[in-house]
Design a protein around this nucleic acid. Structure first.
Length: 463
RNA sequence: GGGGCCAUAGGGUAGCCUGGUUAUCCUUGGGGACUGGGGGUCCUCAGACCCGAGUUCAAAUCUCGGUGGCCCCA
C-alpha cells in the first residue's frame, strides 16, 4: 500500500483500516464501519465541544417542501441540478414534492422567521449534525464527493447587524482553526472568489488543505449571508427603537471531508496514523507469549499496564496470533502507542513502548510508564502536525507568472487585481482554480492587467 | 459535459479472443496440531462467474440493455 499512489492508497485504506465499506450498491453512498464511525464520532465530539460554548444543538427535518426550497432564486440556482426529490407516498403522488435537504437553510429559516421576534432573541446560534443529499454528477468518492453527506455539522446564526454577523464569522474561523490544529491538519484560509461563493451569500471564507497527491480539499466553509435570506424568509426583529429590521445571518459547516483530510494527511504506507485525542484505541497492549509458564504472569502484567493507563483508551490484544501480525494489524488502524510486555520486560520490571508515528521502540521502567505515555501523546501530535504542516508548506509556492503552476502539484500564491476577467485568465493560464484570495501587506502587480494590487490569489487543483 | 477501460469466493486474480467435463492460483474465514520479541508452518473444510434480455443443442465466454467501479479530457 503505497501512499505515493494516493488514489489507490486512499481506497484501500478505507477498507483495510475499517473506516468505510465502499461496496454499498448505490453510487455515491457508503457504509461506515464501526471503527470508522467511532473515529468519526470522536472527531465530531471535539468540534461539538468547541461549538457548545455558545451554540445550541437542534434538529430540523430532512424533507423540505418545494416552495420553500425554491424561494430564494440565487440559492436554488446553485443546487437545482443536484436535488433528490421525494414525489410519492406509497402509490400516491404527493401534492407538494419534497426535497431531500441539499443543505438546511430552507428548512431552518422559515422556523427562524417564527422564532425571532425581538432583539432580545438575538443573537441566535444553532447547529445540527445531519446528513444531506446531493445528486453529484461528477465522479463520486468516499468521504470526499458523496451523494449522501452523512456528517454535515452545520451552524446557523442570526444577528442584529451586518457587523455582528461579520464578528460571528471571525468566531467561526477561530473555532475551526482550533479544531484542525487539534487534529494536526494544516489549512489555508481564504475568501472564495465571488463566482464560487455559497449561493446566496455575501461572501464565503474557506479552509482548504493539501492532499498527498497535491490536490486541494475544501474542509470547511463560513458564509456571511447578510440579509439575503432574511428578506426571502421574512426573518425580522423589533429593534430597541421599536422598528422592524431584517436579521443578518451566517452559516458555516464541516463535513466528513475532515475525516478524509485527517487520515490522508497523516497516514503512511502502513496505514493510518491517528492523533491520540481521536484515536478509538490510544494504547494497545500486547503480551509476548513464550512459554506456557509465563502466560499468567504476562496477562497480569498487561492488566497492570491497563490499570496504570486507565485515563487512556486501552486494548489488551490476547488473540492467538504471532506478535508481528498484531503489530501490523494495529499499525494499520493507526493506534498511536503500543506497549509490549514479554518475559524480558517482566524480568527487568519494565515494558517496551513503541510509537506509531516514528516507529521508535524503547524500554520504559514500570514506575515511569504513566508519565512517559503522557509525554509521548503530546509528542506524537506535535510531530505529525509538524510533518503535515511542513509538507503543505513545501508544496506552496509564490509565483510571478500563472504558467509556473501549470502541470505542477500543490498550491500557488500569485498577485491578482481581483477582477473576474483577470481571475478567469489566471485560471486558464495556470490550469488551476482560484480557491480564494487574501490581502497582503506589500503591493504587487496583477500579471494579467498589470494593475497595482494588495490581493493574492490562491491557486490549486481542487477535489 | 465528452471519451475510454472494466465487472469471476470477503479481497486480489486465471480462464473469455476460438462457447462444451468438477472454473485456476494467492489471500481470507472455520476446525485441528505445532509455534510465539515484526506479517509462521502443515493438515482439513468453506466460499465466486453483477442483474436482465437475446443468439445457441449448449453462455463466465458472443450481442444488447441496466447497475456499479476506475481512468483521462473539459
Amino acid at each position: 500500500m503505497k501512499k505515493s499512489e494516493f488514489s489507490e492508497w486512499f481506497n484501500e485504506l478505507l477498507v483495510d483500516a475499517q473506516i468505510m465499506d465502499v461496496r454499498y450498491p448505490v453510487k455515491g453512498f457508503y457504509v461506515w464501519f464501526p471503527f470508522g464511525f467511532n473515529l468519526r464520532n470522536r472527531t465530531y465530539n471535539v468540534l461539538r465541544s468547541l461549538l457548545d460554548t455558545d451554540h445550541e444543538e437542534a434538529y430540523f427535518p430532512l424533507l423540505i417542501p418545494e416552495h420553500e426550497l425554491l424561494k430564494e432564486s440565487e440559492h436554488i440556482k446553485g443546487f437545482e441540478d443536484e436535488v433528490f426529490w421525494v414525489t410519492r407516498g406509497g402509490s400516491t403522488t404527493l401534492d407538494v414534492p419534497l426535497a431531500l435537504r441539499p443543505t438546511s437553510e430552507t428548512a431552518m429559516y422559515p422556523m427562524f422567521s417564527i422564532w425571532i421576534r425581538s432583539h432580545a432573541d438575538l443573537p441566535l446560534r444553532l447547529y445540527q449534525l445531519v446528513n444531506t443529499f446531493r445528486y453529484e454528477t461528477k465522479h463520486t468518492r468516499p468521504l470526499i464527493r458523496l451523494r449522501e453527506i452523512t456528517s454535515f455539522l452545520e451552524a446557523h446564526t442570526a444577528h442584529e447587524t451586518w457587523e455582528d454577523a461579520k464578528l460571528q464569522t471571525e468566531v467561526a474561523i477561530k473555532l475551526y482553526k482550533e479544531f484542525y490544529d487539534g487534529l494536526g491538519v494544516p489549512y489555508v484560509i481564504s475568501r472564495r472568489p465571488d463566482w464560487d461563493k455559497f449561493p446566496g451569500a455575501d461572501y464565503t471564507i474557506a479552509f482548504d488543505t493539501l492532499m498527498p497527491d497535491g490536490k486541494s480539499l475544501q474542509i470547511g466553509t463560513i458564509h456571511h449571508l447578510g440579509t439575503k435570506f432574511a428578506k426571502t424568509f421574512d426573518i425580522m426583529y423589533e429593534d430597541r427603537d421599536g422598528e422592524q429590521q431584517y436579521v443578518n445571518q451566517t452559516c458555516y459547516g464541516v463535513s466528513e471531508r475532515c475525516i478524509a483530510a485527517l487520515i490522508s494527511v497523516h497516514g503512511d504506507d502502513k496505514g493510518l496514523i491517528l492523533p491520540p485525542e481521536v484515536a478509538p484505541t490510544q494504547v494497545v497492549i500486547i503480551p509476548i507469549f513464550k512459554t506456557a509458564a509465563d502466560d499468567e504472569a504476562l496477562i497480569e502484567a498487561c492488566e497492570w499496564v491497563a490499570r496504570e493507563l486507565s485515563e487512556y483508551r486501552t486494548t489488551i490484544d490476547l488473540a492467538d496470533e504471532r506478535p508481528g501480525a498484531k503489530y501490523y494489524k494495529w499499525e494499520r488502524q493507526g493506534v498511536p502507542i503500543r506497549v509490549e510486555v514479554g518475559p524480558r520486560d517482566l524480568a527487568e520490571g519494565s515494558v517496551t513502548v513503541a510509537r506509531r508515528d516514528t516507529g521508535e521502540k524503547e524500554s520504559v521502567p514500570r514506575a515511569q510508564l504513566s508519565a512517559h505515555i503522557a509525554q509521548l501523546a503530546c509528542d506524537i501530535l506535535a510531530n505529525i502536525a509538524g510533518k503535515a504542516h511542513a509538507f503543505m508548506l513545501s508544496k506552496t509556492n509564490v509565483i510571478d507568472k500563472p504558467e509556473e503552476a501549470k502541470g505542477q502539484h500543490g498550491m500557488f500564491k500569485i498577485a491578482w487585481c481581483g477582477s473576474e476577467d483577470c481571475g478567469r485568465t489566471l485560471e486558464v493560464l495556470s490550469d488551476a482554480d482560484i480557491l480564494g484570495e487574501f490581502e497582503e501587506a506589500s503591493e504587487s502587480f496583477c500579471p494579467i492587467c498589470n494593475a497595482t494590487t494588495y490581493v493574492q490569489a490562491l491557486l490549486a487543483r481542487p477535489y
